[in-house]
Design a protein around this nucleic acid. Sequence first.
DNA 1: CCCTGATGTGTACACTGTCCACAACCCTAC
DNA 2: GTAGGGTTGTGGACAGTGTACACATCAGGG
Lengths: 212, 212
Amino acid sequence: MSVTPASQPRRTYRHGDLREALLDAGIEMAREGGPDAVVLREATRRAGVSPNAAYRHFADREALLHAVSDACLGFAADRIEQSVAEVPEGDPVDTARALLRAVGTGYIAFAREEPGLFRTAFSVPDNLQRAAEPAKAGRNGRTPFQLVGFALDALVDAGVLPRERRENAEFLAWATVHGLGMLVIDGPLRGLDDRMIDYATARLLDMVDRGL
Amino acid sequence: MSVTPASQPRRTYRHGDLREALLDAGIEMAREGGPDAVVLREATRRAGVSPNAAYRHFADREALLHAVSDACLGFAADRIEQSVAEVPEGDPVDTARALLRAVGTGYIAFAREEPGLFRTAFSVPDNLQRAAEPAKAGRNGRTPFQLVGFALDALVDAGVLPRERRENAEFLAWATVHGLGMLVIDGPLRGLDDRMIDYATARLLDMVDRGL
DNA sequence: CCCTGATGTGTACACTGTCCACAACCCTAC
DNA sequence: GTAGGGTTGTGGACAGTGTACACATCAGGG
């Protein structure tokens, strides 16, 4: 997505949108090797620029990584929305249930399809206040955290989830699915075949469904 | 734990137990700064030895990190056993339930008390085959994975958990608690006060209890 | 007692993040 | 239109890292 292709050297002195180019390079490196693989010098190299140029756009490597991490959360949101979009209309109760499941399966799907981005998304310390900031949102402007919230709201509206259990239920749903994602990517559940993971995901979501 | 204190130079040519000293140094660094903080040269420095000496005991930095990670899993097991030990004897059903809860609270407690070690424990790709190997065990010779398994077995024996749901239930229980641990340490739940975390933990364990 | 394999040392290289002084450029105000 | 002036990128340098290679030193068995 860089303005100037890395192949031939830039003619103008100004790059155009170096920040974006560095970010894109960072994302690509994260995709291939996770957070540790996003290295500042390599990003500038890919952007066809000298190492120090990066410091005009990011305070340090940490800042670049943070930006990449936010972008990864956005990709996660996109993947979740994709799963959510596949939920058929129908009985409100069934739909609400299916919605939360879709969020979960989308989350796990993202972890499996893009382990590098998934790991990068959560490699950087974060907190609740920042969980909804726009930089972490996907194309539709919603962050993963917000998507979980919407699914839970739908469950309350459909009368499935008692209202008094709604508060902070994001934590439970998210933690559950997040844990599975981590264990599948590089925890002890690594290397399980796809069928096994699908099965585990389904059972996990059953548990959430029953236990929330 | 090092054989020769780092303060005064070693007199003998041989270190004595350099492998152990490097491992201890690595653990200490992991405790302070997580996986990225365990750096090979610093470990040799703390052991009072030249950088390359490490290569007689570890193939590369990755190997050292792996050993440190295994040790961290052992510490987690210790912390879990501590929580388990506090479960009072009594009605078999209540005891079995409390046992699984204790595993969960111990796990979260470890994450909160030793975030660096916790992150390090899961920083290294792993798989099921290796989940029970002795290097990952605590003082009592049991790994965290095995401890979860025992608690689940107890639930089956007490008639709480239907036998047909026992298989692979480790994944569910573990993923749930692991996810909360991750989110609390450097995910969006970071910075929540202790009461809030206790509350979330309790609700999460309620969910597991109901939904398993 | 010597010699051989194990263990630690020294030197060296490529690579990283980051600091500093400087250069090239675009924009704005006169 | 031209003279600044702030922004953006360059060059050179330094400390710190992982790791390869050749060498030094020792402990213990023949």
